[in-house]
Amino acid sequence: MERQSKSDLRINGLGSSSGGTFNYVQINGKGEISGDLNCSELQINGLGSVDGNVKATSVRIAGKSDIGGDLTGERIVIDGLVEIRGKVSAEHLENRGALRISGDCGAESFKSTGGFTIGGLLNSEKIEIEVYASCTAREIGGESVDVRRGRGFGIKDFIDSILPGLTWKKGLSVETIEGDNIFIEDTTAKVVRGSDVRVGTGCSVESVEYKNTFVAAPDAIVKRNRKI
């Protein structure tokens, strides 16, 4: 392993930097980085923006952030409100906040208990989504896709109980899902293709194409299914 004496970048309060290569980068408060950022650890609490591409081994964003380019990292944890205008590639990506990605998102493992909007393809070996909020992707592809209705603390139930008229859009909506092992709940999709497909409660799928097995819950809407 290379061990260079790279400096740290800390912004507490209001600050800006032109980017570059660092060891540890922390933004508490409001920080603006114009240019590319390369570091081993990036932590943003508060407001942070990076104009260019971000490459970091470990990334944790707990505030509101805006990344103008691509985000590349080994371990990425999102707790806040994050917008990425490029694409994301990671080993492990965990989203507990609200994540918006304009391009594709590739990760060896993708776990989400928050909301997300992915403009392109969500491509991951293992996709686990617990649906508490609105989730959207153009395409989802991978080895195993597991989408479940959120069963934790029901903030939605609470809001529904005091404001029954409010339509709270939640669930996953996606054009196509492709994978070897697929289990979905609360999902609206045009096409679901896979080897073993289970369509659970709250789903509406126009067409399912499967290789081995196909099971649908009684209340799931599946217009067509075809064994190929």
């Binding site: 491509n123 070996e125 592809g141 991978g142 080895e143 054009e175 196509t176 492709e178 994978g179 045009k190």
Partner: peptide, 29 residues
């Protein structure tokens, strides 16, 4: 090959991005 393999290869960039041609068909994209 399986979907899992294909997507894995795509992730590892073994298959170039510009080979993926998206088209509209009667069954959707």
């Amino acid at each position: 090959i399986s979907y899992g393999q294909l997507y894995r290869w795509k992730r590892k960039m073994l298959i170039p991005e510009d080979w993926f041609v998206r088209k509209s068909t009667f069954t959707g994209q």
